[in-house]
């Protein structure tokens, strides 16, 4: 294919070349004929350049928290709705902290056991030609939902205490001094939980869905204001205060961001080894179609040092220790860029 383009009579315009033979097209960009020109990707970025992010918080009025994140041509809307789960509706829920209760076991995660965080990713919005509206969720959508779900829990981003609605029973022992046992201080009890429905809609998809989705989730969670909810003992139900002043934000543990890169190999079919390759960060849809191997690292640099919260790598053998180290370095620079925007 490349030889035909050399003949002046049979030259293609750029986009025809890209459509006819995408792999040599990207390779020609990354491996320029003269060593003077730098290696750039077909989209004009260098292999380690990210796309510029744009974040807009709180644009959905009916959600408790929301964010619109745009990274290049990938645009994600994330809305978070809070619903109340009554503790009396939880089968086998126990308030006591005795040693036999399941909550006393190491590694018990109440937020997870009660499913208080429900992320869902919708790709069938017409965001890209690959996902038609009205179709059942594609494998990619389901896979992304699972990844967001497990990262939400494994990173411990949301503090479980913020989702509990407590009730302090009034101390009635003053009127009735007869019973000595009752006069002991009455423990406050959990009457209900907030369940956060995290809906992530892709408006347009041009590669790298996970990074954008996760950035939207983090930004929307930072934007959440839950109304003050309390247990009304007379009506025996949970009531919420209207006033915004008494509503409270979630206390999030740090601010993790995800950075994905793909590995583009010079030879499509050759066994790995002496093969030349490029690691392309923040890939677009064109590059995703040409690469098998992907790496995602999740980092949090809140405390000044780089803390890792996840690595996910599959599909190839190029990325080893050194490449992961480089990825973490790149992710730290991305954190400095994206972090202030997500705080917004």
């Amino acid at each position: 294919m490349a030889s035909t383009t050399a003949q002046p009579t049979l030259s293609f315009p750029r986009d025809t070349f890209a459509k006819l033979s995408p792999h040599p097209y990207l390779l020609a960009h990354l491996q320029p004929s003269s060593s003077a020109s730098p290696s750039t990707r077909a989209n004009g970025r260098s292999p380690t350049t990210f796309r510029a992010p744009h974040v807009n918080n709180g644009s959905l009025t009916h959600a408790e928290g929301s964010a619109v994140v745009r990274i290049g041509d990938t645009t994600v809307v994330c809305g978070i709705r809070g619903e109340i789960l009554l503790a009396s509706n939880v089968a086998g829920y126990r308030v006591d902290r005795s040693s036999t209760a399941p909550s006393s076991k190491p590694g018990y995660n109440e937020t997870k056991e009660l499913d208080l965080l429900v992320p869902n990713i919708e790709l069938a919005t017409g965001c890209s030609p690959a996902f038609m509206p009205g179709q059942p969720p594609s494998t990619l959508a389901q896979s992304l939902s699972t990844r967001v779900y497990s990262l939400l829990h494994s990173s411990g981003l949301v503090n479980g205490e913020d989702l509990k609605i407590w009730y302090q029973p009034p101390d009635l022992s003053d009127q009735d001094k007869m019973d000595v046992e009752d006069s002991e201080s009455i423990e406050p009890e959990v009457k209900a939980f907030w369940t956060l429905y995290i809906d992530i809609l892709f408006i347009s998809l041009d590669g790298n869905p996970f990074d954008a989705a996760w950035a939207a989730v983090v930004s929307a969670l930072r934007n959440v204001r839950l109304p003050k909810a309390y247990w009304d003992p007379d009506r025996e139900m949970i009531l919420c205060e209207d006033a915004v002043a008494v509503s409270k934000k979630l206390r999030l543990n740090g601010m993790p961001i995800a950075v994905t890169a793909l590995v583009f190999r010079a030879k499509e079919q050759a066994p790995t080894g002496d093969n030349k390759y490029w690691v392309l960060v923040d890939p677009d849809a064109f590059e995703e179609g040409l690469c098998d191997e992907s790496v995602t690292v999740v980092v949090d640099c809140t405390g000044g040092e780089t803390k890792m919260l996840g690595i996910s790598k599959a599909g190839g053998t190029v990325v080893g220790r050194e490449q992961v180290k480089q990825m973490v370095g790149l992710a730290a620079t991305r954190w400095a860029q994206l972090g202030p925007l997500l705080k917004g």
């Binding site: 990262l151 990173s155 411990g156 890792m308 919260l309 996840g310 790598k313 220790r321």
Partner: peptide, 17 residues
Amino acid sequence: QLLVAESEGSFTLEVWD
């Protein structure tokens, strides 16, 4: 060669190495 790597939880690069 490393083919699959999946990690969850909080760790550092030294631990991963």
